[in-house]
Amino acid sequence: MSVARALWTTGPGRVELREEFLPVIGNADVEVRTEFSAVSRGTEALVLAGAVPQSQHDTMRAPFQAGEFPYPVKYGHLSVGTVTQAGPRVQDMVGRRVFCLHPHQDRYVVPASSVLAVPAAVPAGRAVLAGMLEAAVNGVWDAGLGIGDRVSVVGAGVLGLLVATLAARTPGTDVEAVDVRADRSRTAAALGFQLVAPDDARRERDVVLHTSGTGAGLTTGLGLLGDEGLLAELSWYGDRSVEVGLGEGFHSRRLTVRASQVGRVPPARAPRWTTRRRLALALDLLADERFDALLDGETPFEQAADVLSQIAAPGADALCHRFRY
């Protein structure tokens, strides 16, 4: 039997590499040798802290997760690698570079239907962004963003910067990213929009997308909207309660807050869009080399257990940190 190494979270802030046997390849399975995986910092920080609420254990389960929340658990969903072996029904997959929603692991066996070919124009190291760009696409859809809209994105983490990038490519839009971290300004500029501090943000916005993961950010976003404006909430707070200001003009201005969650395609598109089609779109969009501005750290997989808790710690400033295999 072949042996693989995988990253497991075993307790609050505790991570270790474990060996496990790979299953026998089935008729329609592929074996993938990983090249890169990336840390989805917001979600993995909650997993590392044991902060996934019990009521959401099934909802937040990753496609190829092993173990159960809170611990021990093998978690992650941003993996790119090459198919090295395949079952008889999918032999044509051998040699292809693929993306998979798989935890951090150096080799794995999955159904061929669960991987997507990475376009030739997209390097492996950039393709790890596909899962987060897919969430950004879904958020823009949920926000109903249109041509010429005045758009603010509150929160300049990876998700917020991806959302703002998509919004800025919509014809006629006026897009601002809003964050207290001025050091993200250069990254925002490389992606095609401006980052401003909350006090400098423009008001009377048509659409706000919130990704900061804080009640303060959510309150800021509501304050930027014009009458009848809509805020799409992309943050997930785990087991935390947040305080948000719904006083003053929230009701008189008839503001709307709409939840966005990547696990569900918006109703208006669901009859035509599967999650697989949406992920394929994200991979195609990554042909743009400007997305490399989000890739700001890399560690050999052998050191992943030592650095994951640092990357996911509160206040850490990593954007997209990758493990190299």
Rank of each mutant, 00 (worst) to 15 (best):
S2Q: 07
A4V: 06
A6T: 08
E16L: 02
E19R: 15
F21H: 14
E35N: 05
V39Y: 00
S40A: 07
G42N: 03
E44G: 05
A49F: 07
G50L: 03
A51Q: 04
R61I: 08
P63V: 03
F64L: 06
F64I: 13
A66N: 06
A66K: 06
G81T: 07
T82H: 04
T82C: 11
V83L: 01
Q85P: 09
Q85A: 15
R89M: 15
R89A: 12
V90I: 07
R97A: 05
C100T: 02
H104C: 09
R107S: 09
Y108E: 02
Y108G: 09
A112G: 10
L116N: 08
A117P: 11
A117E: 13
V118N: 00
A121L: 03
P123K: 11
A124C: 01
R126N: 01
A127E: 10
A130I: 06
A135W: 03
D149T: 06
V158W: 07
L159R: 08
L161M: 13
L161T: 07
V163Y: 02
V163A: 06
T165Q: 01
A167P: 01
T170G: 05
G172W: 09
G172Q: 11
T173L: 05
D174C: 13
A177I: 06
V180C: 03
S185E: 10
S185H: 02
F193Q: 00
R203H: 14
V208R: 09
S212M: 10
G217R: 00
G217H: 05
L224W: 01
L230K: 13
A232V: 10
E233G: 06
D239V: 08
D239F: 04
E243W: 03
G245C: 10
L246A: 01
G249H: 11
F250D: 00
L255H: 02
L255Y: 00
T256W: 03
V257M: 00
R258G: 00
S260K: 07
V262T: 12
G263P: 01
V265P: 01
W273T: 14
T275Q: 09
R276W: 07
L286S: 05
L286I: 04
A287E: 03
E298D: 12
V307I: 11
A316I: 06
A318N: 13
L319V: 10
L319T: 04
L319R: 14
F323Y: 14
Y325V: 14
